[in-house]
Structure formats: structure tokens, C-alpha cells
Amino acid sequence: MSDFELYYELFGLSFWASLAVGAVLPLVGALLFLRREAFLGVAVPQFSAAGLAGGLWLLPLFPAATAEFLEHGHPPMLYMLPFASGGALLALAAFGRPAGGRPAPAPEGRLAGGFALAVALELVFLARAPAGANLAETLLRGEILLLDIHGFEALLATTLAVLMFLVACRRTVLLSAFDPEQSAALGQPRVAIERGLLLATGLAVGAGVMTVGPVLVFGLLFLPPLAARALAPRLGAFLTLVLVFGLLSVLLAWPASLLLDLPYGPAVALMAAVTWGVAELARRLLRSAPRARAATR
């Protein structure tokens, strides 16, 4: 068995899971950018991690999930998803723009306080859940989990549902992000769609946090949109580039993680940052080239 086959045997499902997360999270991040809510990227994954820790604390109350934890080393993903997504949704509800509301200034003070609270809750929950502490620490370091088929199916179903929602409702989502009043003038069901967007964001962030940790979620939410913004001339190209840069980051992180023995989550964030740097460099070169030609004439 070659090295490649061995890696695939071990990490095959995780590889496909990373592609699913790499496609969905940057698109969610791009929409948060458009809604002028990029500041949520600080708090939402942290709240999601606190929710996950809460789930580990409450694990003894759920015998079936406890049995699976004892057998496989981690609880079933379907058990963890509501906790991780619930934490993310709590942060979105507390700090985000209300569904159908207008863009508002970032609530920096509340956000900072909320972040501190989420960190404290996470540590308290983990202290009370010694059986789950190792798992949570692994997640926080961004070590990719060896997914079983059930976990993979849960993750895939979640990310596919989010992706389908984003594609089907993209126009209402984009317009209510850009100008909610214009959305109302066109008679779009913006409040329902924005609530759907909150749920989709919570699910996507929850899926990302419990799979590969909050570091990866931070990186994937905002670095690909920043890279795409540097190069895209129009909205359609921007969304396409967001998807391309997200997938590129998770793909490049695999060889970096396996060959250099890096935790996968930080490797993804690093690759996304490199992609952003290259995109900014390309933008500057593209801008300066016509100027240089004009100067030599």
C-alpha cells in the first residue's frame, strides 16, 4: 500500500468533509461581509466551541451518545451538531442584525464581553466534562478528526442543505444584505429568508467547528472572501472566486498538514492567508501594469 493509499484509507472521509466545509463556509463569510457583519467572525465560532463543550458536559445525560463516545472516542456527530450550531446561533441572535433589520454599527463592547463569556463557559464546561476534554482540546488545536461514515453523512447532509439554501435564495440574501429596503420594495420574503440565513450560518459554523475546530472556521469564513475581493471585478465573479479560494485553501492544506505534520485547521488558515496575500499582490501588479505602460509612452 502506497503512502497515498494509506493516507486516503485514514483520512478519505475527512478529506471529502473538508471540501464540503471549504465550499460552504467561505460563501457564508462572503454574505456576512456583504451584511457588514464580518465582526461576527470573532464571536460566532467561539460561541460554537462553547456550545460544543456544553454538549460534552451534558453527555452523561444521554446514554446512547455516551456509549458511542466510550466505543469510538467521540460522541456521534448528530449529538454534537445541535450544541455546536446552537452556540453559533446564540451569538448570531445576540450580536447580528435582526432578520429584516437595517445594517447597524458593530456592537464592539457587547461583542468583546460576549467573547470573554464564551471562552469562560467553554473552559467551565470542559472542567466539568473531563471525559470530553481531550476531544475538545483536539478540536481547539484544529486536529482533523477521523470521521466515521455516520459523522461524514451528517456533515455532508448539513453542508449540502446549507449550500442548496444559499444557491436557491441567493438573490434575496444578497439584496437584503446590500439594501433591505429595496428587498422590501420588490416584495421579497426577506424576513423569512434572513431567518433561514441565520440558521444556515449557525449550521455551517457548527459543522465546521465540530469537524476541524474553530481555527479552521475563522480562516475559512473570511480569508477567501478577502482574497476574492482583491481580484473580482463584479458580484458574480466575486462569489465564484470565493468558492475557488475556499476549496483551494482546504486542498493545499492537506499536503502541508501531512508532509509538515501540522494540525489541519491552522494549515487551512495559513493556506487561506497565503492565497489572500497572492491575490493582493496580483491586484497591485494588475493595477500598476497599465500605469507603467502609460508612463513609458
Binding site: R170, R171, T172, L175, F178, Q182, Q188, R234, L235
Partner: peptide, 13 residues
Amino acid sequence: DVVRMGLWVPGRL
């Protein structure tokens, strides 16, 4: 892009 948003009526999502 901005002007086209004025044509994004429901039913053509």
C-alpha cells in the same frame, strides 16, 4: 450589478 438588483422580483429566485 446594482441596477440589475432592481429586477430581482420574487418568483425568479
